[in-house]
Design a protein around this nucleic acid. Sequence first.
DNA 1: ATACTATATGAACATTTAATCATAAAAAGG
DNA 2: CCTTTTTATGATTAAATGTTCATATAGTAT
Lengths: 103, 103
Amino acid sequence: MDEKVYEAEAEYFKALSHPTRIKIVQYLKGGERCVCEIVPYLKEEQSNVSRHLAALKRVGILSSRKEGVSVYYKVQDENVYKILDLALSSVKRIAREKAAILS
Amino acid sequence: MDEKVYEAEAEYFKALSHPTRIKIVQYLKGGERCVCEIVPYLKEEQSNVSRHLAALKRVGILSSRKEGVSVYYKVQDENVYKILDLALSSVKRIAREKAAILS
DNA sequence: ATACTATATGAACATTTAATCATAAAAAGG
DNA sequence: CCTTTTTATGATTAAATGTTCATATAGTAT
């Protein structure tokens, strides 16, 4: 496979490699949300949330639209939920096995 | 969901967020491999490859066993291939859509 | 014991990422 | 026009990451 493809795939995973960004994607499972709803939900700095949203949008996981002064974000890549689910099951299984070894 | 779980999931994605590490996982699709095979395959510094392998092992994606002076790595989390495949299809679709918009 | 091979790790450095504060830009309301 | 609200962005700083070189460690062979 092409080096460029590996790089793009790595960028995609990098966008998901922060707990706040995973939380954002999960929150948007409920559908499109205004930044003015996302910020209070996360209880983090507005500027920080704005940058996390930009990171997810940059790789195409999210998209946004402006309505007046508000900006609405939604999941553009529905595939991401399958990926999050699989990663979660991996993480849980790995943790379970690690616990089993220590017992 | 628990904050700890989001953090563990983020760590998992972080392990996949480097082209060399993705290449390693794909290479190990062929089964267990000695570091002495992985390094020449990647054509990167031995010490660097060693650190990438350690990063993948740390989160449980790979495991290793020692045989004499050699160390063999293999994929411990077979789930990772489903995740890589899904991410690849997302990345391709996103690229296709981006190209379509520009045309 | 010495020398050689395979792998991991410490130290150093450059780059990237995350967080915060302050401010800019755009829209809306008075 | 001035003010307020919402979101994005520049600047700064701290921390994490990736790379390289040199070296340590462990196993094997002579």
